[in-house]
């Protein structure tokens, strides 16, 4: 397990380095550097070149890259020109809101998704299965920004039950997390369904049934336990998708998280924030994937054995 883990962490560091570098490359390829963007079209050439010097943009590109890499590794992405503060400070201030949103959505998606998936998968082809498959198909097809707006229309404007935008209170959390959870719930339900359907066809389920266990016990003790493993794998692979969805959902509901901060920073070309937030997201995704691997080897003795061999 340990050499495996060391290798994985090595890969993880490499991936993060790649993400940091790619962000640098994209922003350098973009038309107009931070100095021209910051000063606007009315600035004189002298002003621009002065700010360039101040920001270190007049140095050779390779020196800039190394400098950027060096400060990025300490979490320093420079100062945001709009917030007049260290970009990382601004980002970390907003980070808890994104985490709360993502975790609530994940909890919702896992609970409802597993439930729907088990209901559908225990009797493949039956009515429950078909209805749930239909519902999950629609849930995956509707874009979160649209379902968010429709939820605002229904819950906030028509029924006047919940606030339409903003963040802070628990009631502000309901609509964004439900919106974000919709496609994710469908994903969890679909994987659980096929996994449960596959496992219930296994001989040991037949054994469990024929030794007289109740259907509930067969499901709880034998079927579900074994069908969770692929669910964990796929869900962890889609944490990126969830966070990407969070970026958009935050924008719809004016939720003050890193996602809406990033979209605003892209619009204003506040490169320090763009770089910092992008890298932070990448680190979260890579870390979550690693954690999921570890969790999987806890759940599945076969993976543990495979890693040792």
């Amino acid at each position: 397990m340990l050499p495996q883990l060391v290798r994985r962490i090595g890969l993880m560091v490499f991936t993060v380095w790649g993400a940091v570098s790619l962000t640098f490359v994209i922003l350098r390829l973009a038309p107009g550097d931070q100095a021209t963007v910051q000063l606007g079209p009315d600035a004189t050439a002298a002003e621009v070149s002065a700010l360039r010097g101040e920001l270190g943009l007049d140095r050779p590109i390779f020196v800039q890259y190394l400098d950027y890499l060096g400060s990025a590794s300490t979490g320093d992405f420079g100062e945001s020109y709009r917030f007049h503060e260290s970009a990382m400070t601004v980002i970390l201030e907003r980070f808890p809101a994104t985490v709360v949103l993502a975790l609530t959505a994940t909890a919702l998606a896992l609970t409802i998704g597993l439930l729907l998936g088990i209901m559908a998968g225990r009797s493949p082809g039956r009515l429950a299965d078909r209805v749930i498959s239909g519902i999950t198909l629609v849930m995956q097809a509707i874009p979160p920004f649209w379902s968010g707006i429709m939820l605002i229309l229904l819950m906030a404007l028509t029924l006047r039950l919940l606030p339409s935008a903003g963040s802070g209170d628990l009631e502000h959390l309901v609509l964004p997390s439900v919106t974000l959870a919709i496609p994710f719930t469908a994903l969890v339900a679909r994987i659980t369904r096929s996994s449960v359907a596959e496992v219930t066809a296994e001989p040991y389920i037949l054994t469990a049934r024929s030794k007289g266990l109740s259907e509930r016990a067969v499901l709880a003790r034998h079927a579900v336990r074994n069908s969770v493993i692929p669910v964990v794998t796929i869900v962890s692979l889609h944490i990126g998708t969830l966070l990407g969805g969070a970026v958009i959902v935050e924008q719809v509901f004016a939720w003050e998280g890193v996602g809406s901060l990033l979209v605003g920073a892209v619009g204003n070309r506040d490169y320090a924030i763009v770089q910092g937030a992008t890298v932070l997201f990448a680190i979260v995704v890579v870390t979550m994937n690693l954690l999921a691997d570890v969790l999987n080897s806890r759940l599945d003795p076969r993976i543990r054995a495979g890693a040792q061999a």
Binding site: L11, F14, T15, V16, G18, A19, L22, T23, I26, L27, A30, I239, G240, T241, L242, L243, G244, G245, A246, V247, I248, L262, V263, V266, G267, R269, V274, T278, F281, A282, V284, V285, V286
Partner: peptide
């Protein structure tokens, strides 16, 4: 490795950054 790096960016994030700048 290139795919690993690209998959580290959540979903549509990379598209947002590229289309934005």
């Amino acid at each position: 490795r290139v795919i690993d790096v690209l998959l580290a960016f959540p979903g549509i994030l990379l598209a947002i950054v590229i289309a934005g700048v």
